[in-house]
């Protein structure tokens, strides 16, 4: 028995930078069964209504990662998104190209920056010439070692996370969630012999621009959970390379800061993060805020039971600078 079809309105982003002054949205209404993938609907638009509609796709099975786009504001795979749920939530389906990447035409974006970021993390095993990998033999890992990869090998490089990321959107220096999740995958690989260098290098290359907003983790169609692996990378980077950046200084400074009173000493934290010059630059804004909020400059009283907090620090953070 055929499923009941319903009229499904689409608004599809159209733009050819070589001809058009500005993007426009074309409207199409298709009679579709609710379980129809958005990709199928777009291909139907292309075959039945407008052969010039341009999009990337290949496997139609959420494996190749080609058909990522923005569907009703969310970056995701068109082949994995069904029209029924979208229609129920939004009353229509708005299709746009991925964010933070220049439009080549319609739904096709220039992925060069995305792939460059991927290449920069050197996504291959780096071996030690003095300790080469066995040739012609297996190089087995234990189940525990494989466990450390977490979900990262699932990544299909669809760039949905890159498109969803507000740090990528705001700062070209941020490598993006996918590149960092891949980096994590090589950092924890016991066969890779460049772990420390990788961790040292990534700190000034934007690791600390991650906002831990977890939008990448929500966008990922494969549940790779990039934001959680970036968190792990930060902890590994501090252990391997210390606090070379504002970001690592801030995280470690925060940790050490609350050991003092159990609660945050806001003023002290700013001092812990910045070098002398940067600190000086903060003064005018600090004065502006402190005029309305004088507590900013106050040293907080230690909480009751601060000795319990101190004991927890002694046990779990013996190296900390308190």
């Amino acid at each position: 028995m055929a499923a009941t079809t319903v009229p499904t309105p689409f608004e599809v982003y159209r733009f050819d930078p070589s001809k058009d002054k500005a993007p426009r949205y074309d409207r199409f209404t298709l009679d579709l069964a609710p379980h129809t993938p958005v990709l199928t609907a777009l291909l139907k638009i292309r075959s039945d209504s407008d052969p010039s509609l341009t999009l990337r796709y290949s496997c139609r099975s959420a494996i190749c990662g080609s058909c990522a786009m923005v569907i009703n504001s969310k970056s995701r795979l068109a082949c994995q998104t069904q029209v029924g749920a979208e229609l129920a939530k939004h009353g229509k389906i708005v299709i746009e190209p991925m964010r933070s990447q220049a439009v080549v035409r319609d739904l096709v974006v220039d992925q060069k920056p995305f792939w460059n970021r991927y290449r920069q993390i050197e996504p291959h095993l780096k071996t030690d010439p003095n300790d080469p990998m066995p040739v012609g033999k297996e190089n087995p890992m234990t189940p525990e070692q494989v466990e450390r990869f977490k979900e990262t090998p699932r990544c299909i490089a669809c760039a949905a996370c890159y498109s969803a990321c507000p740090a990528v959107e705001a700062d070209p220096e941020f490598p993006g969630p996918m590149a960092l999740a891949k980096l994590y995958r090589f950092v924890v690989d016991p066969r890779d012999k460049d772990t420390k260098n990788r961790l040292v290098r990534i700190q000034p290359e934007g690791l600390w621009l991650c906002l831990r907003c977890h939008l990448c983790t929500e966008a990922c169609p494969k549940d790779v959970r990039p934001s959680e692996r970036i968190r792990d990378l930060k902890e590994l980077a501090i252990a391997a390379a210390g606090t070379s950046e504002n970001g690592s200084r801030h995280a470690v400074g925060f940790k050490d800061n609350i050991a003092g009173a159990g609660v945050l000493n806001e003023f002290k934290l700013v001092r812990q993060t910045y070098g002398a010059m940067d600190l000086l630059r903060q003064v005018p804004q600090g004065v502006k805020i402190a005029r309305k909020k004088p507590e900013l400059l106050k040293k907080p009283h230690p909480i009751e039971g601060i000795e319990e907090v101190e004991a927890i620090y002694r046990a779990l953070d013996p190296e900390g600078d308190r």
Binding site: E235, G262, I303, A315, D317
Partner: peptide, 26 residues
């Protein structure tokens, strides 16, 4: 609860995740 300590604000989690869990467990 005058004994409550800071939640770590995400920063302690980045610097030392197990410490962050222990402080919040308290």
């Amino acid at each position: 609860f005058p004994k409550f300590s800071c939640c770590g604000s995400g920063f302690v989690d980045e610097a030392n995740s197990i410490l962050n869990v222990a402080l919040n467990a308290r």
